[in-house]
């Protein structure tokens, strides 16, 4: 097996594990961590697969894309953590309140404080 394949498979695994965690961990910080990891998994796929195809020449385009992606991830993380801190300031809990948003009788939809 080509060692580059290993990185590509790791990329798939990390992307999907992180996607799972982003959807199943309720704590906001883990959601943000998971989103960061999901990005890095995609970067691994992006960088490993083309270098597998043309080993004789490095492809600078995926490298440029990954660099852009890293900066975007930092920006998104900063904003997400800022808003998460404000959620905590308002409700004292690091979770998004549960409740059926589709139900007009639920507290969330009428504007009454639910806590």
């Amino acid at each position: 097996m080509n060692p580059v394949d290993l990185y590509m498979l790791a990329g798939i695994a990390i992307t999907l594990i992180a996607l799972y965690a982003a959807l199943t961990r309720a704590h906001l910080f883990w959601k943000v961590l998971a989103i960061n990891l999901m990005g890095t998994g995609i970067f691994l796929i992006l960088l490993a697969a083309p270098s597998r195809r043309t080993p004789e020449i490095a492809d600078p385009l995926p490298q440029a894309m990954v660099l852009t992606g890293i900066v975007v991830a930092v920006a998104a993380t900063a904003l997400a953590l800022g808003i998460a801190l404000r959620v905590i300031a308002r409700s004292d809990l690091p979770f998004l309140p549960d409740g059926d948003e589709d139900d007009p009788d639920s507290p969330g939809s009428t504007g009454e404080a639910s806590r």
Partner: peptide, 10 residues
């Protein structure tokens, strides 16, 4: 990993 993949920039 990026170094191993030949991407020192990253």
């Amino acid at each position: 990993a990026w170094v191993r993949l030949g991407a020192p920039n990253i």
